[in-house]
């Protein structure tokens, strides 16, 4: 088992190197973009995708916690949120740099910029709430309930508002015409990068869960030693 993990980690590291080389050397810049700016799609979009995926994982574990009341699910939700906020910041910053190159302004409240800021606010509020409650079970229940409530409101800004207002943002991968419009080289690099970022997230996530388990077991042992 350990060998397979190690092999997968090496494979992921190698894949990331190949993807970075492919993104800058092999894929040609897309025609309708300023200069080389279209290359950011290989990093920005997977980061934004992982930011949402992490929130989905946090919401699923929050729901599982409320159902089974297992503290592991709470730790998993918190871990996913901690990773999610990192990817969310990365997606915001890379998007902002792209906006400067493409539209000559770091920030112009495009609907998609607004929605990523909302996700950032949700992550911040969720982690802030966790910081404001001492007792572990109460922290787990209240933050799980909040994560689920936020989970149903986020889609309103994510999907509804960008459709109400016109957006400068390039079409999302699944666009209104329902098909992927990319040349083959861009498509290959883009989808492998998305897969690699997803794998990176789950690897970091499994490390986080391992750390949480060790911390929990250590504090339990500490309590037992104090009691003895």
């Amino acid at each position: 088992m350990g060998n397979v993990r190690l092999l997968l980690q090496w494979f992921l590291g190698l894949a990331m190197v190949v993807i970075i080389l492919g993104a800058f050397l092999w894929a040609r810049p897309a025609a309708s973009f300023v200069g080389q700016s279209s290359r950011i799609v290989f990093f920005h979009v997977p980061q934004a995708w992982v930011a949402f995926l992490a929130f989905l994982v946090a919401a699923i574990h929050s729901g599982l916690y409320l159902k089974h009341r297992r503290i592991e699910n709470d730790e998993a939700a918190a871990g996913a949120a901690r990773l999610g906020i990192v990817f969310c910041v990365l997606a915001t910053v890379t998007g902002s740099i792209f906006a400067k190159v493409m539209w000559n302004s770091y920030w112009n409240w495009d609907p998609r910029e607004t929605s990523i800021v909302l996700l950032l606010l949700v992550y911040g509020a969720y982690l802030g709430l966790r910081g404001a409650i001492e007792e572990p079970e109460r922290k787990a229940t209240l933050s799980a309930a909040y994560a689920l409530a936020a989970f149903v409101t986020v889609p309103f800004l994510m999907f509804a508002v960008p459709r109400l207002y016109s957006s400068l943002h390039p079409d999302t991968v699944i666009n209104a015409r329902g098909k992927v419009e990319m040349s083959t080289d861009i498509r290959v690099v883009f989808f492998s990068s998305t897969a690699a970022f997803t794998a990176l997230f789950f690897w970091l996530f499994s490390l986080d869960r391992k750390v949480s388990r060790i911390v929990r077991e250590a504090s339990l042992r500490h309590e037992q030693e104090l009691a003895a």
Binding site: L121, V122, A125, L129, Y146, A150, T153, L157
Partner: peptide
Amino acid sequence: LAIPLLLP
């Protein structure tokens, strides 16, 4: 806590 829920 309320602002993220109420922004939309």
